[in-house]
Amino acid sequence: MPMTRIMLLSAALLAGCTPRIEVAAPEAPITINMNVKIEHEIHIKVDKDVESLLKSRSDLF
């Protein structure tokens, strides 16, 4: 009988030591700051014939 009591007591003590995991939402909302500046440059090289055509026919584009 004393061995049974010791086993029950140790089982009760070990059951009280189980880890507890808690998942909770944060108090403040999550803020993502996306200050992004995008710059780009386009360089076009054309032949002299195409360049003169574009100058003479400005209504193409």
Rank of each mutant, 00 (worst) to 15 (best):
M1Y: 01
M1T: 02
P2E: 00
P2Y: 01
P2D: 00
T4S: 06
R5P: 00
I6L: 12
I6H: 04
M7Q: 08
L9C: 12
S10Y: 05
S10I: 08
S10K: 07
S10C: 09
A11E: 02
L13F: 10
L13W: 03
G16Q: 09
G16C: 08
C17R: 05
C17A: 12
T18L: 15
T18N: 11
P19W: 05
R20T: 07
I21E: 10
I21A: 14
I21H: 12
E22I: 15
E22T: 15
E22H: 07
E22K: 05
E22A: 11
A25H: 07
P26L: 04
P26W: 01
E27G: 06
E27T: 03
A28R: 01
A28F: 01
A28W: 00
P29M: 10
P29T: 11
I30A: 08
I30V: 09
M34T: 15
N35S: 13
N35K: 13
V36G: 04
K37N: 15
I38N: 06
E39P: 00
E39K: 10
I42H: 04
H43F: 06
I44E: 14
I44H: 10
K45A: 13
K45I: 07
D47K: 04
K48C: 03
D49G: 09
V50H: 14
E51M: 08
E51Q: 09
E51L: 13
L53Y: 15
L54P: 00
K55I: 08
K55A: 08
S56K: 13
R57A: 15
S58C: 06
D59Y: 12
L60I: 06
L60N: 06
F61V: 05
